[in-house]
Design a protein around this nucleic acid. Structure first.
Lengths: 213, 213
DNA sequence: TAGATTGTTAATCGATTAACAATC
DNA sequence: TAGATTGTTAATCGATTAACAATC
């Protein structure tokens, strides 16, 4: 069961953003040092799991002392690749696409929205509109656009029935990573990285737990 | 390691909505019968896992034949509790709250949106607006409203810095289940069911996999 | 140095896969 | 009946927890 160095389990990767969030809170509070058991209390994991998780990437801690909050935060940022910049397009610019676009503009400086595509080229703009200067292109121009402009990530927020076709289009254009907000499980080549936000699935799980026992 | 009957692992519950989605596709195609190995091909699981999963709830299949698509779909619906109705409030009615509200109105007939709350009582309405007759109430009235009107689920889509306070308010009012769209891990009593949509977390995981290897 | 806390190995737990008897 | 496919037990795999030696 020897995992090669650098081959990290999905369970660990899923937890890293939560570590990052927690460390960010500590930084805001001016706390500079934290032990695995303090983190355990804050996050609801065991101290043992936290040490295991962090040791996948090397010894970030110091025996007898704990972890430096700043250093750990930076390391996790680096591990996740959040110290780099990414070019991004949004395909489907209804309320959901706009909501996520707004989030990115306000909270993710490393993500540059380089193109926005929708069947409609108009934006129903709210009052504080981050998008008032944005140009919305027709989906037909996705391929030519991506071939001219390197794109790392495509956010897809089109209606479900268009999801597979749109996804195939961005993949054909050369995009390798998809952040999928549609209710569809996309069927794409194995080398394409996909992260699904299947909001309805979590709603159904919620219904299950409401009725449980 | 005897799990009591009826005590189903979280891993299984997480997969049920995907079974449901897949079965729904088969129904649309007019397919009435499916075997565990056909489902395995469609969903990317093993046939063995599918049989294990379904057998948690009793024998839905027929040896030598397979599963009835309609029956299995209905059973999963019932297991998830989707055959019942739920009253729901939306707290935070910006683009994200509106997007999810629109989804619910159009796709989830069993979910009734009984109240909408926001600091602003106006709706920036798009052209096809499902909400044009909706009344948006001030967050201050949440407690009195919920005490008058039974509410099963609160969708929270307020800015992060308000998330904890808003969540505490709906819990104080008596709501037992929260569908959380904020970036915050809510700290609430153990008997409150929470499902988080931490979209940013999945984006960070995507960044990790883009850089992997 | 003594105390604290990590890094890391071993033990446990739970989830997935394999195998096959039951049965339609 | 013969063939197919489930239901279910056993084996494997992976992830979590416990324990403790290393070391700051």
């Amino acid at each position: 069961m020897v995992t090669y160095k650098g081959q990290i389990s999905k369970a660990v990767i899923r937890r890293l953003p939560k570590y990052r969030r927690c460390l960010n809170e500590l930084i805001k509070k001016g706390i500079t040092k934290v032990s695995s058991s303090e983190l355990a209390d804050l996050m609801g994991y065991t101290a043992s799991q936290i040490r295991q998780d962090l040791n996948n990437f090397g010894g970030f801690g110091q025996q007898g002392y704990g972890y430096s909050v700043d250093k750990l935060y930076e390391e996790i940022d680096r591990i996740l690749g959040l110290n780099k910049s990414y070019n991004k397009i949004i395909v489907g610019f209804g309320r959901l696409g706009q909501a996520m676009g707004s989030y990115i503009i306000n909270s993710e400086p490393n993500l540059r929205i380089v193109g926005i595509f929708d069947v409609k080229q108009t934006i129903q703009s709210a009052e504080h509109d981050e998008f008032k200067d944005a140009q919305v292109m027709t989906c037909k121009s996705i391929i030519s656009f991506v071939k001219e402009n390197p794109v790392d990530i495509a956010l897809i927020a089109v209606p479900s029935y268009k999801a597979q076709v749109v996804a195939e289009t961005v993949v054909e254009a050369g995009v390798k990573a998809i952040w999928n907000f549609t209710a569809v499980d996309l069927d794409l080549p194995d080398d394409i990285k996909i992260q699904d936000i299947h909001a309805a699935d979590s709603l159904y799980a919620l219904a299950y737990y409401i009725n449980e026992k």
